[in-house]
C-alpha cells in the first residue's frame, strides 16, 4: 500500500541534540500500522518522523478532522491546510471526536503538556488558583478525552522541575488521578471504553513508565550521556528508577537527517506568506 522505506544508513548519528534524541525516541515508540491521534508540537514532529522512517503505514489523525494525513511539512496549527490537502478524508470536528475518538478507533493518543505529575496527570489549564491564576494556559482542547478514549497514551515533555511536579495544580487530562487509582473504579461500561492511560513518557533525559501496581511514574530507560542526578534534579518529586534501567539506544544517522530535513522544509514553508493557488 505504501512505498517501501528507503534503504538507509542505520549507523549511529555522529552528533545530535537532546531534543532530537527525544523526538527520535518518541518516534520509535510508534509501531507501523498504529492509529495515532496526534497533538500539535512535539508529538506531531515525532509522529511524522515515525511515518517517514520505520512506520510508513502509521495512520495520523489530527483533531481538526483530518483523517489519515501525510503532511510534507509540519503544521504550525492543528488545522493547517497541509493536513487537509494530504489527508485521506476530512470530517467535521463533531464526527472526529464522536465517531473516531469516542468510538474507539484510536490506538495511541500522543500528547504534549505544560505539566505532568507523579501519577501522570496532565495540566494544560493554569498554574495557581483557578479563579486567580498566576499563569493562564490555553486549556484542555482535545486532550481530556484523548487521554481516556485512546487505548493508550504517550506523553512527550522536556524534563524540568517546573514541568515535572509532585501534584499538578489542575488535572486537565487524567493520568491515574491524585492517588494513582482513578482508572480502577470506573463503571464497567465506562471501563470497557476507557484506555490504559499513559503508558510511556518520553523526555529529553529518559523514558518513564507507570509502575504496574501504584501507577507512579518511574524511570525505565536513561538516554546516552545523561546521569541519574540530572533526572533527579529535573523531577519535582523523589523520582524512582527501576532496578536496572535500560540505556536508550542512540538515534541513527538516517533518523537525525530525516528529522532535520523535515524541520528545514517546515521552516521554509512557514517563514513566508504562503500563497495557495486559486481553486
Amino acid at each position: 500500500m505504501s512505498d517501501m522505506p528507503p534503504v538507509h544508513d542505520s549507523t549511529t548519528a555522529r552528533d545530535y541534540t537532546a531534543t532530537e534524541m527525544m523526538t527520535v525516541t518518541a518516534s520509535r515508540a510508534l509501531t507501523n500500522g498504529t492509529t495515532c491521534f496526534v497533538g500539535i508540537g512535539l508529538p506531531s514532529e515525532a509522529a511524522n518522523l515515525a511515518r517517514l522512517t520505520h512506520a510508513p503505514d502509521t495512520v495520523l489523525i489530527y483533531e481538526s478532522g483530518t483523517l489519515q494525513t501525510r503532511p510534507d511539512v509540519l503544521p504550525l496549527s492543528i488545522g493547517d491546510g497541509e493536513l487537509c490537502d494530504t489527508a485521506l478524508s476530512t470530517v467535521s470536528v463533531p464526527e472526529m471526536f464522536r465517531y473516531w475518538l469516542q468510538g474507539g478507533r484510536v490506538d495511541v493518543g500522543f500528547l504534549g503538556t505544560a505539566q505532568i505529575d507523579r501519577y501522570a496527570n496532565l495540566n494544560t489549564t493554569l498554574i495557581g488558583d483557578y479563579r486567580e491564576p498566576k499563569v493562564r494556559l490555553p486549556g484542555g482542547g482535545g486532550a481530556p478525552e484523548i487521554a481516556t478514549n485512546s487505548r493508550e497514551v504517550f506523553v512527550m515533555i522536556k524534563h524540568s522541575p517546573r514541568a515535572f511536579v509532585e501534584e499538578v495544580d489542575f488535572i486537565t487530562s487524567l493520568g491515574f488521578g491524585r492517588d494513582g487509582r482513578a482508572r480502577d473504579d470506573l463503571h464497567p461500561e465506562t471501563a470497557r471504553h476507557t484506555g490504559r492511560g499513559p503508558t510511556l513518557v518520553i523526555t529529553d533525559l529518559c523514558l518513564m513508565r507507570p509502575d504496574p501496581d501504584t501507577h507512579e511514574l518511574v524511570v525505565t530507560s536513561i538516554h546516552p550521556g545523561v546521569t541519574r542526578e540530572q533526572i533527579v534534579d529535573a523531577t519535582g518529586w523523589p523520582v524512582r528508577f527501576v532496578d536496572a534501567p535500560e540505556a536508550t539506544p542512540e538515534p541513527s544517522g538516517h533518523e537525525v537527517s530525516t528529522l532535520r530535513e523535515l524541520k528545514a522544509r517546515t521552516e521554509r514553508h512557514h517563514s513566508g506568506h504562503h500563497e495557495e493557488k486559486s481553486a
Partner: peptide, 20 residues
C-alpha cells in the same frame, strides 16, 4: 451538534478524572 439538533443537552463519555 446538540444545538443544531434542537436538543437541550449533549451527552458524552468525557471529562473522566478531569478537574474541569
Amino acid at each position: 451538534e446538540a444545538g443544531a439538533a434542537g436538543l437541550p443537552l449533549a451527552v458524552l463519555r468525557g471529562y473522566i478524572g478531569s478537574d474541569l
